[in-house]
Design a binder for these strands. Structure first.
Length: 468
RNA sequence: GGCGCAGUAGCCAAGUGGUAAGGCAAUGGUCUGCAACACCAGUAUUCACCGGUUCAAAUCCGGUCUGCGCCUCCA
């Protein structure tokens, strides 16, 4: 399969370091609040990448961190008058709930920055010893210009950065040797969480966390490092500098970055007041709809979020769910078991959808095309499966739809749910009324149930219901 | 100022040289007591605009316009 590598700006054939295994690191959220739908994009996109790699037979060691020491967390803890730890623990829990609701698999390891401070101190010390870092008054800086390859990921050159951005030169910290140097360790301020280090009490800079956690759980050289496109510079650039200077090895071989999620064609941000949390969206929609929406475009393109598109996504996903549900009923009602010759050849034909699906995913995770393959399969199912179909045929087609959807993390099989007796009774009464051609009463009952959020559909296999 | 991305039907969106996938919405038809589901049909002679290369371009090259992002915490 091919993946677009930000480092080379090309789609490259993916070849893991170790055959059959993938070491993958995805930068996770800073846990100072509920995650927003922008945070959800890399989670969903790279979870899908992982699922597909697993489908291809790779054993994926998937690491995604929680940044639990940060200015924003400290700010929130001051506001609420509780320890920073309480804030981060709370939102890690909430984040995990949201991830589960979006059907994002748990990482192999979810490290937390505060649990890895020793490793950070070690790495900083090594960088000091090698001359890549220096300390001034309790702050440790990375000596950016000493790393020749700095800028190779974001394709920037240091002189452009200097001349292009005057504020960088002017801004504050004149104790730095060079304006481009960035912080590895910062001294504590009164009331802030801190750890003891050779440079005094303080806490790590943001970038060092990921370098250390990636190294500890995946090794010095990994296959895939991923995150939002805004992390390319400076975060990932700095990680590369730290890790490669410390370890003397290539840090990551493939750099994957997702595009942004916009609201009304503008970047979602607090200052614009245009952001939604995953939790809020979850109150209005099944989060499967959010997942479907995110997968309906290519992961590197920006996507625009709106209510209209959520409605459209909801209806589209419903089409797949309905098809699976119809196949299920057909399977239960099927009169014959064995495949007919005609069905055998139809199943041969059906393979083409999986082929299309795989070709799409092999081409830099083209989920939009993969989804369209599922829709073509749905159409195939709706057209070819009927009352006369054998049980085996119907089951095979159903399983195929579920299987392909599952690779994308989309759950399309509705869980069995029992209605309460009251409602069952009403449905039976309505059936009796219909039989007696008392359609007025029948419609009355249908409207009554609709008011309770239950939609009835009269199909050849009997009455079906679903939640509105 | 530097770097980069995008502009495909009402909406979303795939498609990087060979004659426009898929979905939503809307329309007509079949099915249905009605509705829903489903199916069928038609729906972009055309891919922001201008010019060029080519037998052939939405796809390549040059230019123009428009929108957006990064360069500072950010998914």
């Amino acid at each position: 399969m091919k993946l677009y590598n930000t480092m080379t700006k090309k789609k490259e054939e993916f070849v893991p370091l170790e055959e059959g295994k993938v070491k993958m690191y995805v930068c996770g959220p800073t846990v100072y609040n509920f995650i927003h739908i922008g945070n959800a994009r890399p989670m969903i996109v790279f979870d899908t990448a992982r699922r597909y790699l697993e489908y291809k037979g790779y054993e994926v060691n998937f690491v995604s961190n929680f940044t639990d020491v940060d200015d924003k967390i400290i700010k929130k803890s001051v506001e609420e008058g509780v320890p920073a730890e309480e804030i981060s623990e709370r939102y890690i829990k909430e984040c995990k709930k949201d991830m589960a609701d979006m059907n994002v698999k748990e990482a192999t390891t979810h490290p937390q920055a505060t649990q890895e401070i020793d490793g950070m101190i070690d790495m900083i010390q090594t960088l000091m010893e090698k001359g890549y870092a220096y300390a001034v008054d309790g702050t440790v800086y990375f000596r950016t210009r000493k790393f020749d390859e700095y800028g190779k990921l974001s394709h920037k050159n240091l002189d452009d950065l200097r001349s292009g951005n005057r504020s960088l030169l002017v801004s504050g910290e004149d104790q730095k040797e060079d304006p481009l140097d960035f912080v590895l360790w910062k001294p504590k301020k009164e009331g802030e969480p801190y750890w003891v280090s050779p440079w005094g009490e303080g806490r790590p800079g943001w970038h060092i966390e990921c370098s250390v956690m990636s190294k500890k759980y995946l090794g010095e050289e990994i296959d895939i490092h991923a995150g939002g496109e805004d992390l390319i510079f400076p975060h990932h650039e700095n990680e590369i500098a730290q890790s490669e200077c410390c370890n003397g090895k290539t840090f990551a071989r493939y750099w994957l970055h997702n595009g942004f999620l916009n609201i009304d064609n503008r970047k979602m941000s607090k200052s614009l007041g245009n952001f939604f949390t995953v939790r809020e969206i979850g109150e209005q929609y099944d989060l499967q709809v959010l997942r479907f929406f995110m997968l309906s475009a290519h992961y590197r393109s920006p996507i625009n979020f709106s209510r209209e598109i959520m409605e459209s996504s909801k209806n589209a996903l419903e089409r797949i769910v309905t098809a699976v549900s119809n196949l299920k009923h057909l399977g239960e009602a099927a009169e014959t078991m064995q495949l007919t010759d005609e069905e055998k050849s139809l199943l041969e034909e059906m393979r083409s959808f999986r082929t299309k699906f795989e070709e799409a995913m092999d081409d830099d995770l083209n989920t939009a095309d993969a989804v369209s393959a599922i829709f073509e399969l749905v159409k195939f199912a709706n057209t070819n499966a009927g009352e006369k179909s054998s049980k085996e045929f119907v089951e095979t087609v159903k399983t195929e739809i579920i299987r392909l959807s599952d690779i994308l993390g989309l759950l399309v099989e509705k869980e069995e749910e029992n209605l309460d007796g009251e409602i069952e009774k009403l449905i039976e009464e309505r059936q009796a009324a219909r039989k007696a051609r008392d359609f007025k009463r029948a419609d009355e009952i249908r409207d009554q149930l609709l008011a309770q959020g239950i939609i009835l559909e009269d199909t050849r296999e009997g009455v079906k219901w679903k939640r509105a």
